[in-house]
Computed example of a mutant assay.
Amino acid sequence: MKIKATLDRIPGGMMVVPLLTAAVINTVAPDLLRIGGFTQALFVDSASALIALFLLCTGAQINLRNVGVSLGKGATLLATKWVVGALFGLIAYMFAGDNGLWLGLAPIAIIAAMTNSNGGLFVALVGQYGNKEDRAAYSLLALNDGPFLTMVALSIFGAMGFVEGLFSPVAFIAVLLPIIVGMVLGNLDEDMRAFLDKGSLMLIPFFAFALGMGIDFTAIVQGGLGGIILGLLTVFVTGTAGYIVFKALKWNPIVGAAEGSTAGNAVATPAAIAAASASFASVVDIATVQVAASTVTTAILLPLYIGFLVKRLERKGFIFENGEMLQKGK
């Protein structure tokens, strides 16, 4: 039975199939694998640990002489994602109705969903289509976790004053440290770099499945059409913006598009901001369910969009080999 060969024929199959399979299980029978022991530890609770190990293996592939490229890519992704999300949020505030909504969407939900990104999904996609520098760019993307950048956007166009205490430097360091440990090991010992390189691809389907066990398709229903629209905007607007910017800079555009998602932790952002400013209290509930719906929508749609973009590039004569995008005949 050719399981791996079948998955390889599906764009992003090593990530998409396990993730969607787990999401179906979590929606239909959420307690099926939550039985404790090694089963739950591996298939349900392992996402953070496996992603951390993936980042350590990735960090080991970074040559300190080329680290600036990774930081440049990470900063570009972070800035592109934030600018697009903040701009749409500003438009929403400018044209919001008396109920505080724009086209049924809460502006705070737009900013929270479109400026935040699913790090696990990014790592999985870039692990399949990007190189070691692309994967290491994730070290900077940790900055868009939580409400910090949403708060910055709101403060910039005067929706509220800046509120301290919503961004923890310790949390950022905690994300960065596995990459640093891997980088130190890889630069001290070439054999250790080669050893850890073998672990990167193997981990993808396992943490993808664990990520899927955190997805509940009912969130789409609860978030309604507005939440689905928000997810579509996040994938096709922020993802396409990243694609265009990376293509213009002569980088792998698939890596830029891989940022077009909403992270699960963004669901808590509306409540966190409302706790800092009571003026947002009236839209917290609807904003929360819309962000939740966007999280699920992007987790399903972004890998499919990436697959479409990959096929499109392949028709133009590009191929993806060993994490590099190459043009045939060159």
Rank of each mutant, 00 (worst) to 15 (best):
A248P: 03
A60W: 03
F236V: 08
A41I: 08
K132N: 12
G223I: 06
R34T: 14
G260D: 06
V237Q: 06
G146R: 02
G307E: 05
E314R: 07
L71H: 03
T39L: 13
S282M: 12
K250D: 15
F280A: 05
I110D: 01
A278V: 13
S48T: 14
F167Q: 04
G13I: 02
V24H: 09
A171C: 09
G36W: 13
F207P: 01
K81L: 13
G120K: 00
N187W: 09
V123W: 03
L188A: 13
N131M: 07
G226N: 10
L232V: 15
N187S: 10
I244Y: 05
I51S: 00
Q40T: 12
N131T: 07
S200H: 05
K132E: 14
G97T: 10
Y93G: 07
G85A: 07
A47D: 08
L233R: 02
G119S: 10
I10S: 06
I179R: 04
T6C: 12
I215V: 15
A60G: 10
P147Y: 00
R315Y: 06
S70H: 06
D216I: 08
G165H: 07
V126N: 01
L154S: 01
T150F: 02
A241I: 05
A266W: 02
G119M: 05
V175I: 14
L249Q: 12
T115M: 02
L20K: 07
Y93D: 09
W82S: 00
A109V: 08
V289R: 05
T298E: 01
G212P: 00
S117P: 00
I204A: 01
D98E: 15
D285I: 13
A137L: 03
A153V: 01
F162V: 09
V16D: 01
